[in-house]
């Protein structure tokens, strides 16, 4: 169920069009606008400034004519199916459709049920200006390097890096404003259990 936060008045008809790479979406992205201070703005029919488009792709590994392994990505289609062990790459495109920069963009992605996050598979379009943090507690808290306490055979307890299967969410924080009419992309990969 997609959360519909806030209410939109008069702009329900404006659903962002689905881009060509979208697969099996059963709802158009629902974009909610918080109510603004300027009533005149509310009355205006304006598109939501930031549109999120999520794309899923399946990793295909093949050997080429010389026997070298080649990795390609196959976009999901209505007939797509995965097997346990398959790798999925999710790409989230955040498009600033407005004519002014958008600040403080924070994007949060879950690790879907029945998948395991692949450590170090996160990318960002502009790395220096993007802080990436992770949650291992269902989005209650986010840290750069999640750790878990582990009891050693000698009885001592130490903190060790959390294993991949503990990760529940990834969050990107864009420290610079997104210019107008600009799309930023982040990706990450998971493996089907």
């Amino acid at each position: 169920m997609k959360p519909l936060i806030g209410r939109s008045i008069g702009i329900l008809g404006f659903l962002p069009c689905c881009l060509g790479m979208l697969a099996l979406s059963n709802l158009g992205a629902a974009v909610a606008l918080a109510q603004t201070q300027a009533p005149t703005q509310i009355a205006q029919r304006q598109p939501a400034p930031v549109q999120l488009v999520l794309v899923g792709e399946k990793q295909i590994r093949q050997k080429d004519a010389e026997g070298k392994e080649k990795v390609t990505w196959q976009a999901f289609s209505p007939q797509s199916a995965v097997q346990p062990g398959d790798v999925i790459r999710y790409t989230l495109n955040s498009k600033n459709t407005s004519d002014r920069p958008v600040k403080n963009l924070v994007v949060t992605q879950p690790v879907p049920q029945r998948t395991i996050f692949i450590l170090n598979s996160v990318t960002a379009a502009q790395e220096k200006s993007i802080a990436v943090v992770y949650s291992i507690d269902g989005a209650k808290s986010f840290v750069e390097k999640p750790m878990v306490p582990v009891k050693l055979p000698d009885g001592k307890t130490v903190n060790q890096p959390a294993p991949a299967q503990a990760y529940t969410h990834i969050r990107w924080t864009f420290n610079q404003a997104i210019p107008a009419k600009t799309t930023v992309s982040v990706t990450y990969q998971v493996k089907v259990r």
């Binding site: 936060i5 992205a29 999520l54 999710y90 002014r100 958008v102 600040k103 992605q109 879950p110």
Partner: peptide
């Protein structure tokens, strides 16, 4: 899988705006 984001409009820096993406579904 569905993505969520928050951002601010520079003209209204005190207000956090939420965004939600489409849902991507695939069958095992």
């Amino acid at each position: 899988n569905t993505a969520n984001a928050t951002y601010t409009d520079p003209n209204n820096p005190g207000t956090t705006i939420n965004a939600t993406s489409n849902t991507v579904t695939v069958t095992v």
